[in-house]
Simulated scan of single mutants.
Amino acid sequence: MHELIAAPYLDNHLLVRPGSPKAARLPTLRYEELRAQTTSAAPAWLTDVARHAWGLEMSGRELREIVLVRTRSPYGYGRASYELNLGCNYDCEHCYLGLKQFAGLDWPERERLLHTIRDAGVLWLQLTGGEPMIDKLFPETYQLAYELGLMVEILTNGSRLAAPKNLALLTRRRPNRITLSLYGATAESYDGLTRRRGAFRMFLKGLEAAHAAGLPLDLALIITRHNAHEADQMRAFADRYGLPYREYTHMSPTIYGGAETLASQAPDHLIDREPFNGCNAGHTFFHVDPHGMASICKVGRDNAIPLMTTGVEGLSRLGGIADSLMLRTGGCTGCQLSGTCRVCRPLAKVYQEAKAPLDRYCQHATPRS
């Protein structure tokens, strides 16, 4: 099984190693040399790069056993996210997925979908849910994504990380990153937010097992009205394990337009977003739901493309869909603050459809305006 991946990425070529954040940029001539290589020995320059970047010794080893060389895709996508299943073993009040239904593709279709994602040019793939690791086909999905030369990130609550089958798989085929959601610093707040007794204990068990195995971890600190009093403790928790973390304080409506999640907001902990100046959603990034429907992102799900019927060719329409969804329409048409707006149009539309209070997403309703 490969230990390095040489792949086109947008307008560049990269050499990456699963489980490592490091990447080496490859000149086009070097990439083409690897793609056309017919001899078994690794070129001297590659041996030097592998040794200096990752401490990987390639001398005396066959090139094809170490390096997977990806071909260039005409579609030009670099990243994607894939919801394996919306089902979850938690029942968090703030969850934007709303109804967490257990439904998704069977294995033949899922296998075809992963090849489609690879053929789109994707190098970095995020596996999410629901809780992806309770999906019955998670091991097979992860294994194939790895074999296809995708750098995989897993978004998880950590409750199944300690399961021997999962831990063995991820240790043997290392992910690019595992991001664990932290819902509190104590069992009282964590279990209260997830509405599952014992959830904090399962999280700690998974974290400890993955940390001991040396897996690449970071934390997503989810700060809501249930745990805001423990925000400092949650930061200290991350520091105690030496893990990088990001904080999430903005709760959004559900993907079905429901406003029930907004009650979990902790208003005193809201952090101003940067002005929205556009993004690559739909152009170099896309999202796929459990049924193989491709959209520009997790929020902008309108006009989704059925990849199981269109194949990778269907993605050629996604850029135009993205441009149309990003237009300021409806209540945002002609807004005098659009130049400094902190919310993209698809997200604003979700808030508007949920009839959310204006101060949850619009600068017109805040003193800071």
Rank of each mutant, 00 (worst) to 15 (best):
A7H: 06
P8S: 06
G19D: 11
A23C: 05
A23S: 11
R30W: 00
R35H: 10
A41L: 14
A42M: 03
T47W: 00
R61F: 09
L63W: 03
I66A: 12
V69R: 13
V69H: 13
G76S: 05
Y82H: 13
E83A: 15
N85D: 15
C88L: 01
Y90I: 07
Y90V: 07
C92K: 01
H94D: 10
L105D: 07
W107D: 10
T116L: 03
D119E: 15
L123V: 12
L123S: 00
W124I: 08
G130L: 02
L137A: 12
Q143S: 15
M151Y: 01
L155D: 11
N157S: 10
S159W: 04
L161W: 07
A162T: 06
K165C: 10
R172F: 10
R173V: 02
Y183N: 09
A185P: 12
D191M: 03
T194P: 01
R195T: 05
R196W: 05
A199Y: 00
G206V: 04
A209P: 01
A212G: 12
A213P: 02
L219S: 01
L221Y: 04
I222M: 09
D232W: 09
A236Q: 15
L243S: 06
H250K: 12
T254C: 06
T254R: 09
T254S: 14
T261E: 01
A263C: 09
A263R: 15
Q265I: 13
H269V: 03
I271H: 08
D272M: 14
G278P: 13
K298F: 14
R301T: 15
N303L: 10
M308Y: 04
M308W: 02
E313R: 12
G314W: 01
R317W: 07
I321V: 15
A322W: 07
S324H: 11
C335E: 02
V343H: 02
A348C: 14
Y351K: 05
A365R: 05
A365V: 03
